[in-house]
Amino acid sequence: MEKNGILWVREVSKSYRRVRALDSLTLSVERGSAFSLLGPNGAGKTTLMKILLGLVSSDSGEVLMQGIPVSSPASRTGVRYLPENITFPQWASPLVLFRQMERVRREVSMDQFLVRCAELECSELLRRPVGRMSRGQRQRVALSLVTCGDPVLVLLDEPSSGLDPGGRILVRNLIGNLSRMGSTVLLNSHLLGDVERVCHTAAFISRGRLVAMGDLDSLSRHTGLVMVETGEPERMSAALFESGYSCRQDQRGLAVELDESADFGTMVRAVLDTGIGFTGVNRKRESLEDVFLRIMGDEAMEKDGGKGKRECS
């Protein structure tokens, strides 16, 4: 693990009275990556984020941000954080909030803020008091305030909370843009579909421990199925069955069972030999939700009494 990465966490533990929130957790995040913290509720993700920002002190371990111990305010230069629950003063408009923020951080120009507001489609809200905004509008304003300019590192705790599908797409695009522009994004979200689309790497945390970490492609396994996209699934299924392949239909198309060791080319040839029209043949890999459930096992379900599965879908 590189100490000069943007984040470097080694053997960090934290307890709240008798509850062990983090247990000898070690991880590092490379500069410019979009990194996600995944785990069931109470896994310790938010605690980790707060330790990174110096909001919560760890009981033991070492944490560096931009190569500087997090106890030093200098480690937070260029770092932005959007907490899960923040209530801005009801009377304040986004312009007032931006002015208040820049009094402290002095990093962003008004133009940069306006650009971000336009990107998140909240330019028309600039003079409206926060108290007269919907939850989704407030969230978009908060995201504009936090991510404007050229941040080095952005920590987002449930950024899509309260947003409609359109808002969620905007957030996904925002994270993608930030990452492309060289910012590192640390995302804590239960919306695995969103994480899958925008993040390169993820750490799976359970009961305060790191269970798995890596880039999403390498974490995702082959499912043993090949999806055949065809307009005649019944005929295709019967033809492939005659060639020795076992098939089943699901809502996404025709799924053909194929072991990892079996030859994909031979199977594609079998599809071609049927003479039936098709538009695509793809090996099916695990979705992030599948990966999550495989790695977390029953723990994720037990923790929330089954709520986890709904949240992660």
């Binding site: 200098a74 480690s75 770092v79 932005r80 954080y81 923040i86 923020m101």
Partner: peptide
């Protein structure tokens, strides 16, 4: 708001 202010440098 306090975590927010404290997260600034």
């Amino acid at each position: 708001r306090m975590p927010f202010w404290l997260s600034l440098p």
